[in-house]
Design a binder for these strands. Structure first.
Lengths: 234, 234
DNA sequence: GTCAGCGAAGTTGTCAACAACTTTTCGGAG
DNA sequence: CTCCGAAAAGTTGTTGACAACTTCGCTGAC
């Protein structure tokens, strides 16, 4: 969400290799990765001194990194009380997924108007691999392919604004994200939905592509509501 | 005789209540307001020293404020080159408006499922005022009412996630926003669209509410594309 | 026992000085 | 006159020290 690395293409006149102090961007990316990997749990305090030790960056850069992640909704900063990994309620999870639904719907529609023949082949390829993964019961692999498919659709659409927003929203749900794919029976339901999306984009039918994507994500929301009734997610 | 250390005896006037040093949040809000008011044009450099003078905040807080506004997409920061008001191309304006279209569509749908009788009256009220404003040729007032209507729909929906995103997107387009309402003939086109939105929400018809909102904003996108062809907007 | 008050420890917020980088200026060689 | 390069000016990036705030534990009166 920022153009901060100005790679001028010109080599540095003054090499400063020996410095191992990491800059803001590096610290931010590593910390985000750690949070998404679940190494810090929601609600856990992020004490600056500890982060300095772990990531080897200066306090200044650590603070900037925390500010950035707060902007992304991954971290919550309370004045004079420090930062903690943001807790996301189920209600908020549903809201976020609803927004993802309409955004990915928009992206799917745009992908349908822009897809090239080559990209269509890529879509087919992923669809095929998905079907195989489901038949083989490789659910983890199916989950990966799921992400690949959504990423490919976004790449085809080339909608930077929607793309960026979807990225930050997905990050906020990273914890729940892959759990869903592993629910018993989920792949059987979502596979035909994915295939419908692929077919619509291949057929260059924006309306159908959007509808297919929205139905797909709407069914995820249904599952979330079910989990709510069962009290599975806090 | 380099740095003469200041003895603890003389602390400039105590940094208590009376001190006018503004904090990050205040500086950020005031700077954002100034940018949205057009006091800084797109592409204009935001030199820290000048901002310190104008807003009376410390450099530290000015920098934090700039970071925040960069996160909101209002400002662009290039490393070692400072900040400037972000320029938004027409292509990006269209992208942002497309995202707004689907987000406000979602919000309208949700508003239709939640609207109370009292809120329905408020909608009617605004609709009535809009019609009168158009008939009286008060376009500036119509533009205000337009914003009020959208804000009311969002309030009714109570969708925090979508609400926040729409807010930041609207801010990015603040410059173009009100220009559109002032285009000749625009109110005549958009008034019935607004009335359709109101009717749909009143009728508690989510699908129709979303469709009405999307058609409305889609027509804005059409105008943007037209302006592009005419080369009016850079 | 307990609870208010007080102080220490731990953590975050802010600042001013300094370092590094970019842009501008200017003198001299060609 | 123009171009090159280095110094100067202007601006931003970073650091370490310190101030302010929160939390926790201790003491002692009741």
């Amino acid at each position: 969400m920022s153009a901060e690395n100005n790679l001028t293409g010109v080599r540095r006149s003054r090499p400063r290799r020996t410095d191992e102090g990491k800059d803001k961007a590096t610290a931010r990316d590593e910390l985000r990765k750690a949070i998404l990997a679940g190494e810090y749990m929601p609600g856990e305090r992020l004490v600056e001194a500890q982060l300095i030790e772990r990531f080897g960056a200066s306090r200044f850069n650590i603070r900037l990194a925390l500010q950035d992640l707060a902007g992304e909704g991954l971290v919550e900063i309370q004045r004079n009380r420090g930062a903690q990994v943001r807790k996301i309620s189920l209600a908020e999870t549903i809201e976020i997924t609803q927004v993802r639904m309409v955004l990915e719907g928009l992206v799917a529609a745009q992908a349908a108007t822009r897809v090239t023949d080559e990209e269509a082949s890529e879509l087919d390829e992923i669809g095929l691999l998905m079907r195989r993964a489901v038949e083989a019961g490789e659910f983890r692999r199916y989950s990966d392919l799921n992400q690949q498919l959504h990423a490919l659709v976004r790449r085809i659409a080339g909608h930077q604004t929607a793309d960026r927003l979807i990225g930050t929203l997905r990050a906020q749900l990273a914890r729940h994200q892959f759990m869903l794919s592993l629910l018993p029976g989920r792949p059987m339901v979502s596979l035909p939905q994915h295939e419908r999306i692929i077919t619509a984009i291949r057929g260059r039918d924006p309306g159908e592509a959007e509808a297919a994507m929205r139905d797909h994500i709407a069914s995820v929301i249904e599952v979330l509501r079910t989990l709510d009734d069962q009290g599975i997610i806090p």
